[in-house]
């Protein structure tokens, strides 16, 4: 029984069958990659996991509870964090504030009227946020306006915002899209470290085979909305069906 269990999920957009009978099981403390050609339904599946979309049929269970029908903020409070394809950060706020907000969300829940307390007096939150920034090597940028960060730093900041909440499951939507090779390798190292040091289960959607094969312990190949195979990286590499659907044209 995995921490995330997706069973028989279907999703139609008008005449298009975006997801057809998807079954997926993500084991705790593993890195699970979902790959597939463009339009295979990877992002739709992810959106079904975080409450942005509701599947037509099927069930999505996280740690024994259904996430269907819950709002994104409720799903986050259950312990699922998400990194977006293009970094979603609070661009008008400083780097430190960006990390403090998830800390508040973790401690105080989805709403708390703390209008009279001063941010400066929240020592434990400040410490937690600074520690996190130090962990991702961004402490010296704490007072920078986060909108003026480089793309790689924005990604790192977004990752820090998710990690500081100590989620049980981290969903990553193409975490290295548009990155230079050096940045990509840094991200891979960061993700590896996160998985090993923090025991965070990860589910990655990725195009870059280099990233997938350096990180994932299990891979699901999605094609036209249905899972083709699910196996270990070594087996996937040599799988004829996968080659045909995906690697054949990409490699």
């Amino acid at each position: 029984m995995g921490i995330l269990e997706v069973k028989g999920v279907n999703k139609r957009f008008g005449g298009l069958q975006a997801l057809g009978d998807v079954n997926l099981s993500v084991e705790e403390n593993t890195v699970h990659a979902i790959i597939g050609p463009n339009g295979a339904g990877k992002s739709t599946l992810l959106n079904c996991l975080v409450g942005k979309l509701i599947p037509d049929t099927g069930s999505v269970m996280f740690a024994g509870q259904s996430v269907l029908g819950r709002k994104p903020h409720e799903i986050n409070q259950m312990g699922i964090s998400r990194v977006f394809q293009t970094p979603e950060i609070f661009a008008d706020l400083t780097v430190l504030e960006n990390v403090m907000i998830p800390c508040f969300a973790k401690r105080d829940g989805s709403f708390r009227m703390h209008a009279i307390e001063s941010v400066g007096s929240e020592k434990e939150i400040l410490e937690m946020a600074e520690q996190m920034l130090a962990d991702v090597n961004m402490l010296e940028k704490r007072d920078m306006h986060s909108g003026s960060l480089s793309r790689g730093d924005k990604r790192r900041l977004e990752m820090a915002m998710c990690l500081v909440q100590q989620p049980r499951l981290l969903l990553l939507d193409e975490p290295t899209a548009g990155m230079a090779r050096a940045d990509t390798n840094n991200t891979i190292d960061l993700l590896k470290e996160i998985n090993q040091k923090r025991d965070i289960t990860m589910c990655i959607i990725e195009h870059d085979m280099h990233v997938v094969f350096s990180l994932a312990q299990r891979i699901t190949v999605l094609a036209q909305g249905t899972p083709l195979v699910e196996d270990t990286p070594d087996k996937i590499k040599g799988h004829p069906k996968v080659r045909e659907a995906y690697l054949g044209e990409a490699a």
Binding site: H73, I101, P102, G109, F111
Partner: peptide, 12 residues
């Protein structure tokens, strides 16, 4: 700044 990020950060 970013309501989407806010919701996905567990804030209503």
């Amino acid at each position: 700044s970013n309501q989407q990020r806010m919701n996905y950060t567990g804030l209503n």
